[in-house]
């Protein structure tokens, strides 16, 4: 990669993904359960905050693909643990997949979350 390309990459803004806030059926119920898991710093639940990107169900197995507001967040492991324990209370064996690329953006916070913070 040339220096020009490296500079262009440095100056360009990263792509923005779209988080999921609602779903039908069981996936929707999982999302509702995840609304009890709070991000400690933002004071919002992880769904409203836009951290959850995918929910995949296979029997009693749930795979939650989520991101973090801050890659390398020192309490991220605890957040994942809370996700797993919350879903375990609903009879699901959950696994959390961390997806850091593309990174989370504050634009992904749901409207109601913005109202709560603003």
């Amino acid at each position: 990669m040339s220096i020009f390309d490296r500079l262009k990459e440095l100056m360009s803004e990263p792509e923005r993904p779209i988080a999921i806030y609602r779903a039908e059926g069981l996936e929707g119920a999982v999302l509702d359960a995840l609304r009890t898991v709070m991000d400690p710093e933002a004071g919002l639940d992880i769904v409203t905050l836009g951290l959850v990107r995918r929910v995949q169900l296979d029997g009693d197995q749930a795979t939650i693909t989520m991101t973090l507001t801050t890659p390398g967040c020192p309490v991220a492991g605890r957040l994942f643990q809370e996700v797993e324990e919350t879903l375990a209370a609903h009879g699901l064996y959950a696994e959390v997949d961390l997806e850091l690329d593309p990174p989370w953006s504050s634009e992904e916070i749901a409207e109601e979350g913005r109202a709560q913070l603003g």
């Binding site: 400690p40 004071g43 643990q81």
Partner: peptide, 13 residues
């Protein structure tokens, strides 16, 4: 200090 004080998250700061 909050993060170190216990193992779990326990809600918002």
């Amino acid at each position: 200090a909050w993060a170190h004080s216990t193992e779990g998250l326990g809600g918002p700061l």
